[in-house]
């Protein structure tokens, strides 16, 4: 008997309201079709979605957490990138 584990898949679900597929979790499956079936059973049982993407986790290249300071911290001091430095005319009531 083989004890080899099935590959890991990342699951993305598009909800009825949303336009984008959102990452919801991961699961194991032998191939892409079974991954879709498993994702349907694991992640859409409560009508969470109308479309599923699965991606082999090994195909996801992630940023290195140890590089977080140089990658993300510089933007913390650039508050001018947020559009909050202008006055909204009174006539515009809802922004």
């Amino acid at each position: 008997m083989s004890n080899k584990e099935w590959p890991l898949w990342e699951v993305f679900i598009r909800s009825k309201q949303g336009l984008n597929h959102k990452h919801v979790g991961s699961l194991r499956a032998a191939d892409e079709e079974m991954a879709i079936d498993n994702a349907r059973d694991v992640y859409t049982r409560r009508s969470e979605g109308i479309s599923i993407w699965v991606v082999l986790s090994s195909n996801v290249f992630a940023s290195d957490p140890s590089e977080a300071p140089e990658l993300y911290e510089p933007s913390d001091s650039k508050i001018y990138r947020h559009p909050t430095f202008y006055d909204v005319p009174d006539e515009i009531q809802h922004m």
């Binding site: 099935w6 699961l27 194991r28 499956a29 079936d37 498993n38 059973d41 694991v42 049982r45």
Partner: peptide, 11 residues
């Protein structure tokens, strides 16, 4: 046999 299939069969 695996968690995913356990959920599928129970569904």
């Amino acid at each position: 046999p695996i968690l995913e299939e356990d959920i599928a069969m129970t569904n």
